[in-house]
């Protein structure tokens, strides 16, 4: 009969599901640091990216959105990883009526935005399209982000890895800042350096770095730093 299978990414908004945990506390520092990365003009459209896949950027994006929601802000999480979407799984949705469907005209704005049990509004990636970078370069996508900017206080944009596809650089052009995620156990130093170089060359300001999946010895030093956020540089 039925087996119990745990689908990947399920229940990974730790800020909402385990609000008292050390991990949740680490995420709560991130909006503060983003705010102070540019005091006069606080970034409101925030891109989350990384060098390669499997660095927990979607989990970070969802948790950052959850922290903004916890602070009482109106926030939307947009899945722009059109090639390997996962935000819908993190938020318990099905990937229908998403961004690609909107961009190709198969759904409208009213159906695009989904409410979740985490009280975060979400835009799914939608059905796969042959050339995601073309969809992301469209005026319709730019207009959508502009519309979201008017309707929400914060727009968190989950985007694909920088070293695999150009999508993130295209998305970066219309975001206010980028948060770069590094998996402490798997990300190679050269990969991280190369990805940050790409962001800088494209004039995408980096608000900071989230260090995910930190080693136990770091966590032993201070239990409050299992997810560590560090200010690095800005444009």
């Amino acid at each position: 009969m039925f087996r119990n299978h745990k689908f990947s990414h399920k229940d990974s908004i730790i800020v909402a599901t385990q609000p008292e945990s050390v991990y949740a506390e680490s995420f709560r520092k991130i909006p503060i640091n983003i705010k102070y990365s540019r005091v006069d003009d606080e970034p409101r459209v925030i891109q989350i990216t990384s060098s390669l896949s499997g660095e927990h950027k979607s989990t970070s994006a969802a948790n950052i959105a959850a922290v903004y929601r916890e602070l009482g802000h109106k926030v939307i999480l947009v899945d722009c990883d059109l090639r390997k979407p996962s935000i819908h799984r993190i938020t318990g949705l099905v990937n229908t009526d998403g961004l690609t469907d909107y961009l190709v005209g198969n759904t409208d704005y009213a159906n695009l935005i989904k409410q979740t049990r985490f009280e975060i509004d979400v835009i799914n990636a939608g059905n796969p399209v042959p050339f995601p970078h073309v969809a992301l370069r469209s005026e319709k996508f730019k207009n959508l982000i502009a519309k979201l900017r008017e309707s929400y206080e914060y727009v968190i944009v989950d985007s694909p890895p920088l070293l695999l596809v150009t999508d993130s650089l295209i998305i970066g052009e219309i975001c206010d800042t980028a948060v770069f995620v590094i998996n402490q156990r798997t990300t190679k130093k050269n990969a991280a350096k190369e990805a940050i170089r790409l962001l800088r060359e494209s004039n995408i300001p980096i608000a900071g770095i989230v260090l995910s999946n930190t080693a136990k010895r770091i966590r032993r030093v201070s239990k409050y730093y299992s997810y560590k956020y560090k200010y690095t540089s800005k444009k």
Binding site: F2, H5, F7, S8, R89, G92, L93, V94
Partner: peptide, 14 residues
């Protein structure tokens, strides 16, 4: 398959 069966489970279909 993972995505397909995930979607069925979210919609509560067996």
């Amino acid at each position: 398959y993972e995505e397909l069966f995930y979607s069925f489970s979210v919609l509560k279909y067996n």
